[in-house]
Write a protein that binds this DNA or RNA. Structure first.
Lengths: 145, 145
DNA sequence: CCTAAAGATGTATTATAGATACATATTTGT
DNA sequence: ACAAATATGTATCTATAATACATCTTTAGG
């Protein structure tokens, strides 16, 4: 059980933008700092823009910045949007061939556990994630303006 | 984010044994009823035996049966043993190359969420999973002795 | 005590999903 | 109009889960 790198990169993107709220870095710059694929990060960024967390500015001096205050970006909401939460095959109603799915008592239990998981994430915002901002700036090798 | 089929099969095995406590079915028989691979189920069964949930009886009239009462088989404990719980790459201390893992505020949040997830599973036993025993027997096409 | 039935173990192959790379189109500001 | 940046689509690579196969071990019954 693990989160996809898609979710991972989404969080890294948000963290990068959060620690320097006045900058408008490009996707290229962010990918360089994390040493990850620009193309992959691009797709992640697009979804973040469409989801309304990030604002993308095109053209010459374009770049990205957060579309809302840190405290209004909820971790639970973000990960809900980037992950597939079909914990087991039988959660996916289309491709379910388990013989006992009709009477299986495991499904509601897993659902409740997942709710508890997401409810925990819901209690945190991006502000909590970047609480150690000075250290993050240092680790990312950013110049403070 | 999803559980491996390994966990899925482990639960199916336990359910099969739970609904007919007086029978000692073989791995072959169980695999047939679920229409899943005998070899795969075999490994799952071995782990379940080693973990002390299932008792395996060898020889001519061998088979499997639960090693403990239903209520003493905890779902959280079972899944803890069958799953890899490294939610993200940076949880795995050996292969962690994320630049900001030292100051990242996401890690403790994910850990807390995972704890909430497992704590929920800990509240249920195999007895809860097979609460609808008559229906399960019917779905599995089992003859009641 | 020998053998057949069943479990146990290890290795190899296949399938799938995720990650990455590459190519190209589109938008936008100067 | 052009350059800088975003956006999209396709193809390839790779890691891991799933499966298959082969072989060894244990055990009950004759």
């Amino acid at each position: 059980m693990h989160l996809t790198r898609h979710s991972d990169y989404t969080m890294r993107l948000l963290i990068y933008l959060a620690v320097q709220p006045d900058a408008t870095p490009t996707i290229q710059e962010i990918a360089d700092h994390y040493r990850i694929s620009r193309n992959h990060l691009m797709k992640v960024a697009n979804r973040a823009v469409q989801a309304g967390y990030v604002e993308g500015m095109r053209g010459r001096a374009g770049g990205l910045r957060l579309a809302r205050p840190l405290k209004q970006i909820n971790i639970g909401q973000v990960l809900r949007a980037t992950e597939n939460w079909d914990l087991v095959e039988c959660f996916d109603t289309e491709s379910n061939h388990c013989a006992i799915s009709g009477g299986c008592g495991l499904q509601p239990i897993l659902r409740r556990a997942l709710e508890a998981y997401l409810a925990t994430l819901d209690r945190y915002s991006l502000a909590d994630v970047v609480a150690r901002r000075p250290l993050l700036i240092q680790l990312l090798d950013l110049k403070t303006a």
